[in-house]
């Protein structure tokens, strides 16, 4: 026995170790895209300066950053409602999406009745419905958040139900043979198995949630980055628009980063002893 097992064990030990040079290729993976982005900004700056492009048409990166540095207080007052409403829309879309996926997974009736409709809904260019939300819910936060949920929840439903369905049939049979309850199977097997799917759906949802809020702000708001962009563009204040767009990108990155962080935490929890 010691012999037979020893050979295989010995052969396996080497595999999990990291390859040499992995650190180098990691650095490469970070430096290359950053380098390319800096190069693009440099060309943009050069084009503005050398080509004498008027700031109304295209403000240069440096003047945009300068504006952000000077007027960060105004930008921040507009960034906060946009970020808060996007986050709210995203969280509600995720909760609704996961809940619908649970229903679709466990109820055959719901699956057969609901799923085709959801897919059909997805075919509607949903942005076209934004004005209706204002008729229904007014011009306040609630109509922007509702619209944001409306366009963001779909990828969560699809990804999550695919995740719940991805569980190996053998694993389910094993659970049943152990007299596991549906609840136990969900908590110990289905949900953790679906986590990578859920988070990939949520990563799409987070950008869609922001888009939903910005569109809402384009139409109605008296505050928010979407409002600022529309307002400044109408007054040919392109520099302000550009600065607002940059800040919007940062807000998006922040929310995306939080989702990625959530994923890392969830993975850690499920890999750990508990559950």
């Amino acid at each position: 026995m010691a012999n037979a097992i020893g050979t295989e064990t010995g052969a396996m030990v080497a595999t999990p170790a990291a390859e040499p040079g992995a650190g180098l290729s990691n650095a490469r993976a970070i430096l290359l895209p950053i380098g390319l982005a800096l190069l693009a900004l440099g060309l943009w700056q050069a084009a503005c300066v050398i080509g004498h492009i008027p700031p109304v048409i295209l403000p240069s990166p440096l003047s945009t950053f300068r504006y952000i540095g000077e007027r960060w207080d105004i930008l921040l007052t507009h960034a906060i409602p946009t970020t808060v409403e996007s986050a709210l829309g995203f969280v509600l879309a995720s909760v609704l999406g996961i809940a619908l996926a649970v229903v679709i997974t466990y109820s055959r009736l719901a699956r057969e009745a609901l799923y085709p409709n959801l897919v059909f809904f997805q075919l509607i260019p949903k942005i076209a419905l934004a004005p209706l939300f204002i008729i229904w819910l007014g011009i306040g936060t609630q109509s922007r958040v509702a619209f944001s949920v409306f366009i963001a929840f779909f990828p969560v439903v699809i990804a999550t139900s695919a995740g719940f369905a991805s569980v190996d049939r053998g694993m389910l049979r094993l659970c049943r043979s152990l007299t596991a309850t549906e609840r136990q199977i969900f908590l110990h097997v289905r949900f953790p198995a679906a986590l990578p799917y859920i988070f990939s759906g949520m990563k799409v949802a987070v950008t869609l949630a922001i888009i939903g809020v910005i569109i809402g702000e384009f139409i109605t708001a008296q505050a928010g980055l979407g409002y600022l962009i529309i307002f400044a563009t109408a007054r040919a204040d392109t520099e302000v628009s550009m600065a607002a767009i940059v800040v919007l990108c940062l807000c998006g990155l922040l929310l995306y980063g939080l989702v990625a962080l959530g994923e890392a935490v969830a993975n850690r929890i499920y890999a750990a002893e508990a559950s």
Binding site: G170, R173, L174, H188, V189, P192
Partner: peptide, 11 residues
């Protein structure tokens, strides 16, 4: 029970 595939939880 043991099946043809080990069916371990990968995480």
């Amino acid at each position: 029970i043991i099946f043809q595939d080990a069916t371990l939880l990968p995480w």
